[in-house]
Write a protein that binds this DNA or RNA. Structure first.
Lengths: 209, 209, 209, 209
DNA sequence: CATGAATGAGTTTTCATTCAT
DNA sequence: TATGAATGAAAACTCATTCAT
C-alpha cells in the first residue's frame, strides 16, 4: 500500500533472496558433489552470484554450512512441535515413544544426502552442535519416561533415554543410508516400536533376572 | 647357508617393516591431527621414511587409509573369533546376543579416536566397506536368530538382525564419542543387553498386540 | 528569501560536511587499523555514509589519502606561518634555525600515528609530494642562511639547508616513532639546537681544518 | 675426494641454490615492481621455480622478506667489521665518528631501491627489527663517545648517540632517495662530518651558552 | 545525489604426486 | 629401492570499484 514499503523492501528482499539462493545452491552442490566437491566458486556459480557476494553475507564457507545446519535443526524442532500437537497413542506407550520414533524418522527421511554431508561436516568439529541437539531430545525423552514410569520396568530415566535415542537414531540413520525408502515401511516402523517397547516393558527378561 | 636367503629375507622383512611403520604413523597422525591434518608428508616424517618410499608401497594416500581400515576389520574378525571360541551364555539369550554385544563393544572400545577418523574417511565413499562388514555381521546374527528361534518371539531374521546390529552399533558408537569409558560400565552393558533381550523376547508388547 | 538559496546552501554545506566526514573517518581508520586495515568500506562505515557516496566525492581511494596529505601539508604551512609571525631569537642563531626546529617538532608532534601511515602511503609513490614540500622548506632555510651568513662559517647555502632539514627531520621522526613524548622534552630540543648550531658555527672543527 | 661427499652434496647444494634463487628473485621483483607488485607467483616465476617450491623453504611470503632483511643486516655488520679493522682517524674525531659515517653511507649506498622496499615492508610491523639494529649501533656510538669524552663537550652519551645516529641516518637515507649518487660525493661526506664534529665539539655554541 | 548489493580479478597458501638422482 | 626437491592445480578469501534502484 504505502510507497515507503515499496521503496525499502526491494533492498532487504534482494538481500534475503540472495542469502536464500546461496543456501539453496550450497544444499544442491552438497547433494551432488559431496563435501569435497563443494567449493565457494561452485556455490556462487550455482547461486548465480559472484564469490564476493557470498562473502558479503557469510564470513567464510563454514558459516554457510553452519547456517544450513541451523536451518535443518530449526526444521526438526518445527517437525517435533507439529508431532506433539497431534495426540498419538500407539502401542500403549504414551506420546513420548511415538513422538520419538516418528520425529526421528521424519528427521532422517528428509533430504538424506544433504544431511549426510552436513553430518560429515559436523563430524570435523566433533559433532558438538548435533550432540547438543540430541541432549535436548534426551531430556524430553527422560522426562516422558518419568511421567510414564508406572508403565515401564524400573529404570534410570537419563540412562534409558540415552540408550533409546542412540538406538533409534542409529537404526534410522543406517537404514536410510542403505535405502532411503526403508525406514518408512510399516514393518520397519513396527520393529522399531518393538525395540523401544521391549526395552521399556516390565516383562523385559533382563528386568526379571 | 646360501647368501641369497640372507640377502632376500632382510629385504622382505624390511619391506614389511616399512609398510608397518607407515600404517602405524598414519594411525598416530590421524589420532593427533584428524583427517584434515593428515598429510603424506606428515605420515612419511613420522614413519621415518621419505614421501617417495610411501608411494613405493601405496599407489596413493587413500590406499594407506584403506589398508588401515582393512587391518581394523581384520582385527574385528579376530576379536569375534575369540569371542565365539568362548561359550558364553548370558541372560539365557544364547551366544548370538552375547557375542553381538561384546563384539561391538570390544570393537568400539579399541582406539576410538582412530576409528572415528577412519569412519569419517569411509563416509566420503558412502561407507561401503563398513556396510559390507556390517552385512556379514548381520548374516551371522540372522543365522543365530534362526537357530534360537524357539526362544524368541516370531520375527523375520534378516530384518531383526538389521535392527539389532544397527541399534547396538548406534548406541555404542555414540556413547563412546561422548565418553570413551561409558560403554564399558556394567550398567550400560546391562541396558544394552536389555535392549536386545526385550526386542527378541516372546513377551515383547508389540508381539502380543 | 528565495527558495533556491535555501535549497542550494544546505547542499553545498552538506557536501563539504560529507567530505570532511570522509577525511576524518579515514584518519581515524588509519590510526586504528594502519594502511593495510584501511578499506573503503571501513571508511564509509565510520563516516556514516555509503561506499557510493565516497566515490561521489573522490575518484578512488588514493584520492582520499591524497586529500588527507594535502590537508596535513596545509596545516604545516599554517604552523610555519604562525611561527614566523613570532619573532623568536634563540641561541643567537636567527629565526631560521629556531623556526626550523620548532616547525619540524610541531609538525611531527601532531598526530604521529596518522602521519606515519600517510608517510607509508607516500612511500609507495616515491614520497614525491613530501619531497616537494621539503624542497620548499629547504629554500626557506637556504635563504635564511644567506641572510645570516655573517654568523655562520662559510658554506654552500643549498647544501647546508639540505643537510639541516634532513638531519632535523630524521631525528624528530625517528624519536617520535620510538616515543611520541620524547621530542618535546627540553633536553632533546636543546640537543637538536646544538646539532644545528654546531653545524653552522664558525668554530666548527671541520671549518677550521 | 671421498665419494660420500659427492653423493650427499648435490642435494644440499641444490636446496641452497634454490633458496638463493628465491631470495635473489625477490630482490629483483622488489626493485622492479615495488612491494605492491611483488607476488609469490612473480617471485617463483623469476626464480625459475614453482610456487610450491617457494613454500617448501619459506612458511609464507613475509618469511622471504624477513630473510632478505636478515641478510641485509648481516651485510651491514660485515661492512662495519671491515671498517673497524681499518684504523681511520679523520677530523681528529676518533674512529667512532668516522666509522659511523662511513658505515651508514656504505649501508645506504648499496641497493637503495631494494632497501627502500624492505624498509617499507618493515614499516608495516613498526620497524621493530630495524630499530633493534639501530639500538645496537647506538650502543656502540655511546661507548665510543664515553671513550673520547675528553675531546667532546660535556654530554649524555646515550642521548647524544641517539641524536647522531638518527641525524646521520636521516641525512643519508633522504639524500640517497633524491639521488643515489649524492651521499658518495666528497663535499657531502665533508658536511656530514661537520654535522657530527660540530655537534660534539667543545666549542659548540649551545654548550657555551 | 545516496545507497549498498554485486562484481571478479587477483592473492596467498596447501598438498598429493612425480621423478631425477 | 630410497630420497626429497619440485610441481602446479585448486581452493579460500579480499576489496576497490560499479551501477541499478
Amino acid at each position: 500500500m504505502s510507497l515507503e514499503k515499496q521503496v525499502r523492501r526491494p533492498r532487504q528482499e534482494r538481500s534475503r533472496a540472495t542469502v536464500e539462493a546461496i543456501l539453496e545452491a550450497t544444499a544442491q552442490v552438497l547433494r551432488r558433489d559431496a563435501l569435497e566437491g563443494c567449493t565457494t566458486a561452485g556455490i556462487a556459480k550455482r547461486a548465480g552470484v559472484s564469490v564476493g557476494t557470498l562473502y558479503q553475507y557469510f564470513p567464510n564457507k563454514e558459516a554457510v554450512y553452519d547456517a544450513l545446519i541451523d536451518r535443518l535443526l530449526d526444521e526438526r524442532v518445527a517437525t517435533r512441535a507439529a508431532l506433539l500437537a497431534r495426540d498419538l497413542e500407539v502401542f500403549d506407550m504414551g506420546p513420548a515413544t511415538t513422538m520419538l520414533i516418528d520425529d526421528l524418522m521424519a528427521v532422517h527421511l528428509a533430504d538424506p544426502k544433504l544431511q549426510h554431508q552436513l553430518h560429515r561436516y559436523e563430524a570435523a568439529s566433533g559433532l558438538e552442535r548435533l550432540d547438543r541437539y540430541q541432549q535436548r531430545m534426551r531430556d524430553i525423552v527422560a522426562s516422558q519416561l518419568e511421567r510414564y514410569a508406572e508403565h515401564c520396568r524400573p529404570l534410570d530415566p537419563q540412562l534409558a533415554a540415552r540408550i533409546l535415542v542412540h538406538a533409534v537414531t542409529g537404526v534410522i540413520e543406517r537404514m536410510a543410508r542403505e535405502d532411503p525408502e526403508m525406514p518408512a515401511r510399516p514393518e520397519v516402523r513396527r520393529e522399531v516400536a518393538a525395540l523401544v517397547a521391549g526395552y521399556l516393558s516390565p516383562s523385559n527378561p533382563v528386568a526379571l533376572s
